[in-house]
Amino acid sequence: MSTETQEHDPLLAHQFEDVEQQTDSYVLGMWVFLVTEVLFFGGMILAFILYRNMYFPAFAEAHQKLDWRLGGVNTIVLLTSSFTMAMAVWASQKRDYGKQLMFLTITVLCALAFLVIKYFEYSAKFEHHLVPGTNFHFDGQNQNGVQLFFGLYFALTGLHGFHVLVGVLVIGVLMFRVWKLRKQEQDYVPTELVGLYWHFVDIVWIFLYPMLYLLGGVHI
C-alpha cells in the first residue's frame, strides 16, 4: 500500500487525493444520479401526457375523484420539508449540529405526514373500487380512460411515495450519524447529498400535483 505518503485525514476515503476531490465527486455523482431519476419518472410522465390527450374527458372526470385539498396540503407539507432540509444543510455547514438535528426532525415529520395523508387517499380509492384490476368499477361511459387515469395515478404516486419512504429512511440514518458524532467535526457533504435527493422528491410532486389533482379544473 502506498498510502503512507499522504496525511491521514479521517474524513478522506483512500481513493481520493484530497477533500475537495472527494466532495466534488460525491456531489457530481448525486447530480448524475438525479438525472437518471428525471428520466425514470420522465417515461411515465410521457405516458400520462399522451393518454391525457387521448382520453381527456375521461381523465377530467376521473380526476374529480381525487381530493385536491388533500393533495394541496401534501404539496405544502413537502415544500415545507424542502425548506427545512435546505436549512439543515445550512446548519451542517455552520457546524451547528443541534439546529441541524432540529431541522432534519421537522423534515422527517413532514415526510411522515405526507405518507399518512397519502395512505388515507389510497384507502378511499380502494373503498370506491377505483384501483385498476379485477375489482375496478366505475359507472359511466369512459371505463377504459378512467382506469388508465387511475393506473397512471397509482404508478406515479406509488413510485413517488416509495421515494418519500426511502427519503425517510435515509434522513433517519443521517440523523443518527449526526447525533452520534455531534461532539466532533463532521463533513457536511452527506447532509448536502441527502438534501439534493430530497429536493428532487419535492420537485416530482410539484409536477404531479397539477398534473393529477388540478387537471381539468377544480371547484372550491
Partner: peptide, 24 residues
C-alpha cells in the same frame, strides 16, 4: 426556484450545472 436555491445549482460547479441541463 427549488433547483437554483434549495439545491444550490446556481452556486454549483459548472459540471453539475451541465449535467442537470443534460437531464432536462
Amino acid at each position: 426556484f427549488v433547483v437554483l436555491f434549495f439545491m444550490g445549482l446556481k452556486y454549483s460547479s459548472r459540471l453539475s450545472q451541465v449535467w442537470a441541463g443534460v437531464g432536462l
